[in-house]
Simulated assay, not measured.
Amino acid sequence: MSPPITIDAAWARDHPLPHPGEGGKEARGRVLVVGGGVALLGAGRLAGEAALRAGAGKLQLTAPAEAVAMMSLIVPEARVLGLPRDEEADDALFQALGQADAVLIGPGMEADLGRLAKALCLHVRSPLVLDAGGLAAAACPGPDVRILTPHAGEMATLLETEKAEVEADPASAAKEAARRFSAVVVMKGARTVIATPQARLAYYAGGGAGLGISGSGDVLAGVIAGVLARGVDPFEAAAWGVYLHGEAGRRLAERVGALGFLAREIAAEIPRLLHV
């Protein structure tokens, strides 16, 4: 087993992101973000904007039928598709699931949509990120490439154990989840752990306490999806996502203050961090 990797600026310099050249938006990939009830539309917006800030070229979002027009105005860069309330998605959403270069399921997805998340996973052909409510589909058949982004409470649910046990040894929890679900796992916390099914481990300890705020996880998931859509290996996409999210938090802490910045401010810091 190789020794754990430290994710920092030196690692980022040694693992540069692909340059799109003259290819335009199609060359940088299409991200589809599935999630969000009417009361949680902001989560989809945070994730989608973060994917674009991470360099993805095209964005599609979902929203409940009664909020599609609203979401289109909130995120004018995105095409917005209707989110069904059950497993019966329409043709447009099924087509989007098959055509995206990366799919993120879960931001703002209410608990009662867990069955929908499981059904939609069956139609995904591209790399898949499962976050928040989408983690209900962690064990479902779907694409070979998947990334899970749980916090300690969600990890405890995934592993059917106690939150205290996860917090006592997050690396072991991440490795077990990666093995059990055949996924790259991003175990979120003050010291984020990234694990692969092959027991590869990486750590990121930066970012600061200010990132522990509502919506921050949606931004992280969106950044990972954006990097994935650009064709990056899933482990490196997860590592880059964690690094960009954390360093954006560090910069905000220096400029705004250690606490009190907003999740909506994180993504705007990312373009300046893409090339270290």
Rank of each mutant, 00 (worst) to 15 (best):
residue 44 G to Y: 13
residue 54 A to P: 05
residue 4 P to G: 06
residue 91 D to R: 15
residue 96 A to F: 12
residue 54 A to Q: 00
residue 125 R to Y: 08
residue 105 I to W: 03
residue 58 K to V: 13
residue 76 P to H: 06
residue 56 A to G: 05
residue 31 V to I: 10
residue 18 P to K: 07
residue 31 V to N: 03
residue 2 S to V: 14
residue 84 P to Y: 02
residue 124 V to G: 04
residue 66 E to M: 08
residue 45 R to N: 06
residue 98 G to L: 06
residue 1 M to K: 12
residue 30 R to H: 15
residue 11 W to P: 02
residue 103 V to E: 01
residue 109 M to H: 05
residue 51 A to M: 08
residue 22 E to Y: 14
residue 26 E to D: 15
residue 119 A to R: 10
residue 55 G to P: 09
residue 63 A to G: 07
residue 67 A to N: 06
residue 18 P to Y: 04
residue 85 R to M: 10
residue 23 G to Q: 01
residue 64 P to T: 02
residue 77 E to N: 00
residue 121 C to H: 00
residue 26 E to N: 15
residue 100 A to I: 06
residue 107 P to I: 10
residue 90 D to T: 01
residue 80 V to F: 05
residue 108 G to R: 08
residue 27 A to G: 04
residue 21 G to M: 03
residue 122 L to F: 11
residue 44 G to Q: 13
residue 26 E to C: 10
residue 122 L to A: 15
residue 47 A to S: 14
residue 43 A to W: 02
residue 25 K to Q: 00
residue 101 D to G: 05
residue 38 V to A: 15
residue 123 H to I: 10
residue 117 A to K: 09
residue 12 A to Q: 02
residue 44 G to M: 14
residue 49 E to W: 11
residue 97 L to W: 09
residue 55 G to T: 11
residue 25 K to L: 01
residue 114 G to M: 01
residue 50 A to F: 00
residue 52 L to M: 12
residue 92 A to W: 08
residue 104 L to C: 13
residue 66 E to F: 03
residue 73 L to S: 11
residue 18 P to R: 08
residue 51 A to Y: 10
residue 37 G to T: 10
residue 110 E to P: 07
residue 43 A to M: 08
residue 28 R to L: 00
